[in-house]
Amino acid sequence: MTPPSRELSLKLLGSVPYCDRLPAGRLLPPVGIIPGDMRSLSELHLLLAPDDRSLPGVNFNTLVDWVERVIGDRELADALRETVENTTSYVDGCLKVYELVGLRLTQAREVAGQEVLT
């Protein structure tokens, strides 16, 4: 992906209004499916971080639409769309989305002059 503009970078690193939140959850046995809306890409990145006790819950189609419509990053949305259409499993999709979103956040932080976290 090409580096985002400064304006888009700030948007990528910010939060969206409550009404624009992305529904998501987490399957944590034996607790069950725990709801947890997303209001930023960095939240989404943490949700998707690999964890041996639980699985993230997200609808890929809704996610791609949210990135394009709410976050306003068409390039990331296109990359995500292509990625989720070519995964071997839901978990594989989560891992690839995690990597892509992480990459985009890194790009945005570099452009915005923020510390790049790992």
Binding site: S15, R26, L28, P30, V31, I34, P35, G36, D37, M38, R39, S40, S42, E43, L46, L47, A49, L117, T118
Partner: peptide, 22 residues
């Protein structure tokens, strides 16, 4: 071990900068 370790998770993600902080 159970729900008490997860109740704040959806909200901690709003402020945590790394998985470790989360």
């Amino acid at each position: 071990a159970c729900q008490e370790t997860a109740w704040y998770g959806p909200f901690a993600r709003k402020v945590a900068k790394t998985p470790a902080e989360n």
